[in-house]
Nucleic acid binder design. Structure first.
Length: 560
RNA sequence: UGGGGUAUCGCCAAGUGGUAAGGCAUCGGUUUUUGGUACCGACAUUCCCAGGUUCGAAUCCUGGUACCCCAGCCA
């Protein structure tokens, strides 16, 4: 993937840091990837991971992995595990131990006390409904809470009782005292702490009050010495608040928040909520279903870390919200696999071919390269015999003009083997084709026939030697470019009923020992990956990662 | 209607006053025992719109327009 360097799209944050360094402003670059463990990572997170870890890599700094775990109700250990696995699989290593915002709960609590003592935070007893009322609207200012002017002493006592578990969930909250009339709603006395009598996956039952995202994030960055706190555009409105905490608390360091546009991909959804719904409703087989845009799903589908990283380089990092064409993703994986995937032949929809002129001169063991452009990868052996399977798509009884494949009286090259001619089509009473009787030209193994050109090449497999395999043909999960564009229509209405078509295929024998997660190009068909969970000797399962480009399909489409 | 953003080819995206990079997609062609790959070529007189400044504007000014985000005790 040497192309990555020459085609990498711009990244305004990288430019920013380059400028800072040129001016001697930046010391060591420290970034962080801060997922909440409430779901699996998806392709959009891959963009963020590549950005944060990539920046640390490029500038010789550190990138931390920090779980933003301030909401125990939604978080689970399974997600913590999967996230770490995904980051590592992508090829990144975080600096030091895995971190958790919950590691800082003590410090955060102390800082809350600090704000209270300074008269900058208070305990509020408004109900959620009242609080909404008091907050005002987008166009109207809010009103101060009746609890806003409690004394620090009273607030200290109340907050201590909250922490001690004297109140039920939701009874009271700690709020910052900022400005109820602020045009930016985030500044209208935001909530710092809420009561949640919930078991936390890291801190157990130590706490029954949990800090909010806003009160946690920037301070965690400060504690860790993060220099560049990179997040998505929707947090831009939170930046004044992020900075307010840093300015009003005795933090050891001043991180800077920078926002970039999150990734949108057409024909897919990238919202944890929607992905979770697909999983929970059993529409897909789990978070790592090969149709899911999760990192685990893409992996199982046959995407490689290199392809995903290349993709992230390709799309660039900007502040404008766009929708990336899924063809970019396809392009990335094809580029990688074209260079690196082993070649094999596999017949998806068999039709029998009988060679009528087999004799002792015809080779029964044919060697073929594992990769035609990379001889160093070695060879495989293809058994050849009088009974073969070819793909039904590669034969037409009444072909159009430009059809280069097999047809009555027409010649075609069997990939890696001989040129054959179809002499006769044998059918049953109903007219279904039973077999194609063909004769081969013995002089065409490894060389072109004399005096004529055979343009077509088709793949095949020896019937007696073929190994059966389950081949899962995956396609987009949705039939429309923007499944969630219409607020009136449920995105599930756009599910592609053919997103998974499973077929019983016949593979060349070298595939019998296919190891899980091995990538192949089934020649002329597409790229496939041995399923990482299911594929084993005796039960082969291959997932179609992406098809080969198919210009014949285009020609046909135009004709139709 | 308040605040915060973004607008350059079908999509992503450079460009920061000197006369529109690149990638994806698309369309031609060459090579080819993968209708794949590779290679060659085509593809924005125009930068959301309208005025203005300037010898010169995608870039500066003015006024519009469109789209995205914000009224969780989610992140």
């Amino acid at each position: 993937m040497s192309k990555a360097e020459t085609t990498a799209a711009p990244n305004f944050i990288r430019n920013l840091i380059t400028d800072e360094r040129a001016q001697g402003q930046t010391t060591k670059v420290v970034t962080r990837f801060p997922p909440e463990p409430n779901g699996y990572l998806h392709i959009g997170h891959a963009k963020s991971i590549c950005l944060n870890f990539g920046l640390a890599e490029q500038f010789g700094g550190d990138c931390h992995l920090r779980f933003d775990d301030t909401n125990p109700a939604k978080e689970e250990q399974e997600y913590i595990d999967s996230i770490q696995e995904d980051v590592r699989w992508l090829g990144f290593q975080w600096a030091g131990e895995v971190r958790y915002a919950s590691n800082y709960f003590d410090q955060l609590y102390q800082w809350a006390l600090h704000l209270i003592r300074e008269g900058k935070a208070y305990v509020c007893e408004l109900t959620p409904e009242q609080m909404r009322e008091y907050r005002g609207t987008l166009t109207e200012p809010g009103r101060p809470s009746p609890f806003r002017d409690r004394t620090p002493a009273e607030n200290l006592a109340e907050f201590e009782r909250m922490r001690a578990g004297e109140y039920p969930d939701g009874a009271k909250v700690l709020r910052a005292k900022i400005d109820m009339a602020a045009a930016n709603i985030n500044l209208r006395d935001p909530i710092l702490y809420r009561i949640r009598h919930a078991h936390h996956h890291q801190t157990g039952d130590l706490w029954c009050i949990y800090p909010s995202y806003d009160f946690t994030h920037g301070q965690s960055d400060a504690i860790e010495g993060v220099t560049h706190s990179i997040c998505t555009l929707e947090f831009e409105d939170h930046r004044p608040l992020y900075e307010w905490f840093l300015a009003n608390l005795p933090v050891p360091h001043q991180p800077k928040q920078t926002e970039f546009a999150r990734l949108n991909l057409n024909y897919t959804v990238t919202s944890k909520r929607k992905l979770k719904l697909l999983v929970d409703q059993g529409i897909v087989e789990g978070w790592d279903d090969p149709r899911m845009p999760t990192i685990a799903g893409l992996r199982r589908r046959g995407y490689t870390p290199a392809a995903l990283r290349h993709f992230c380089d390709l799309i660039g990092v900007t502040r404008s919200n766009g929708v990336v064409d899924i063809n970019m993703l396809y392009h990335s994986i094809r580029t990688d696999l074209e260079e690196n995937a082993q070649r094999a032949m596999c017949v998806l929809n068999p039709i029998k071919v009988v060679i009528t002129n087999m004799d002792a001169d015809v080779a029964t063991q044919i060697k073929a390269p594992v990769h035609p452009a990379r001889p160093e990868l070695g060879e495989r052996v293809l058994p050849f015999s009088a009974e073969l399977y070819i793909d039904a798509e590669d034969f037409m009884e009444d072909p159009p003009k430009k059809y280069f494949r097999l047809a009555p009286g027409q010649e075609v090259r069997l990939r890696n083997a001989y040129v054959i001619r179809c002499d006769q089509v044998i059918k049953d009473e109903q007219g279904h084709i039973l077999e194609l009787q063909c004769s081969l030209d013995k002089e065409t193994l490894g060389k072109n026939p004399e005096g004529r050109k055979v343009k077509g090449v088709i793949h095949w497999v020896s019937a007696a030697h073929a190994v059966p395999a389950e081949v899962r043909l995956y396609d987009n999960l949705f039939t429309v470019e923007a499944p969630d564009a219409d607020k009136e229509v449920d995105f599930l209405a756009h599910l592609n009923p053919d997103s998974l078509v499973s077929v019983q295929a016949y593979c060349e024998p070298s595939l019998a020992q296919a190891q899980p997660e091995t990538h192949y190009q089934f020649e002329r068909v597409g790229y496939f990956c041995a399923d990482r969970h299911l594929c084993q000797e005796g039960r082969l399962v291959f997932n179609r990662t992406v098809g080969l480009k198919d210009s014949w399909a285009k020609i046909q489409k135009k004709g139709a």
